[in-house]
Design a protein around this nucleic acid. Sequence first.
DNA 1: CCTCACTAGTTCACCTTTCAACCTTTTAGG
DNA 2: CCTAAAAGGTTGAAAGGTGAACTAGTGAGG
Lengths: 158, 158
Amino acid sequence: METETATRWLTDAEQCAWRTHLDVNRLLTHQLERDLQPFGLTMNDYEILVNLSESEGLRMRMSDLASATLQSKSRLSHQITRMENGNLVRRENCESDRRGLFAVLTEHGLETMQRVAPHHVASVRRHFIDLLPEEALEELHKSLTPVAEHLRNHRGKP
Amino acid sequence: METETATRWLTDAEQCAWRTHLDVNRLLTHQLERDLQPFGLTMNDYEILVNLSESEGLRMRMSDLASATLQSKSRLSHQITRMENGNLVRRENCESDRRGLFAVLTEHGLETMQRVAPHHVASVRRHFIDLLPEEALEELHKSLTPVAEHLRNHRGKP
DNA sequence: CCTCACTAGTTCACCTTTCAACCTTTTAGG
DNA sequence: CCTAAAAGGTTGAAAGGTGAACTAGTGAGG
C-alpha cells in the first residue's frame, strides 16, 4: 500500500510569487507600525479604534470585536486592558447578558483616532495603495477575496 | 498659512482591497502556523531551515541570515538560541572574521526540514497557491514586486 | 603603529502573545 | 425546576519580540 504521494513542489514562478507575498507583508507591517509609533499607537490599537468608531454607540461586545479583528478572546482582553490604561477605551457591562461586556470608545479615544487617521491613511497610500495601478488593486482584490473566504470557513480545522 | 492638507481618504474599492489584504495575511499566517504545529516548528523556524538548507555548507552568517529573513539581529539571536536548544542548528565561529558566527544546520535540522517540507508546501498550496488561477498569481507577483522593492529601499527612514 | 569609527553579535529589561485553567451566566433537555 | 453543557470573559505563567546598551573585533586615516 502506497502511503506516500509525490510532493507537488512549487514551480519557480509560484515560489517567487509566494516569497514576494511574504516579504511584502512583513515589510509593510513593519513600516506601518513605524509610522504609527510617533502617535503612541500600534496597528492593533488602531484597528480597535477603527472598529469601535464605526459601530453604533461607539461600542462593541468583546466577542464581536475579537472576531472582527481576528484575535483570540484572551489576546483581545489583554489588548483592551492596555488601551483602558491609556484611556482610549473603557469596559461597560451589558444589561441584557450579564456575562457580557462592551468595549466603549472614550472621548480621548475618538479624538486620538481622528487625529491619527489621516497620517495612517497617508502611510497606507504611500507604501501600498498608491504603488499599485487601479486595475492591479482591483485584480488583487478579486483574487484575494476567495482566499479570505476559504480561510475564514476553514478556521479551527484539519 | 495652511498647515493642513485635505486627506485623501481611501475610496470604497481601495478600502475593500486593503482590508482583504490584511485579512488574508492574518488568516493565512495563522493557518500555516497551525499546520506546522504538529511538527513542532513555527514559520520562523521553518524559514531559517529553508535558508540554511539552500546555502553553501548549510551555513550562513548571522547577519546575512537576519537580513535574508527580514528580522532584527536581536530577534534572530534569540531565535537561533531556541533552535540550538532543539538541536536544529548550531553556532560555529568564523575563522576569517573573529567577530562573526555561522548558524549551521545540524543533521537533525536537515532531516526535520526534509520531512516537514512536503507538508508545508501542501499547506501553502491548499490555502493559497491553488486557490489562485495561474494568471492571477503572476499578476499578483508583478504587482507586488515594486511594492517589495519600495519597502526594502525605504527601511529605517521617515 | 594608533586611534577612532564602524561592524558583528549578544544581552537585558520590558512589552505582547499564547495557552490552559478558571469563573460566571445562559441555555437546552429531561 | 434542575442539571449539565456551552458561551462570554478574565487571568497567570511561559514563550516570543523589541530596542537600547554593551562587548569585542576590524579597518581606514594620520
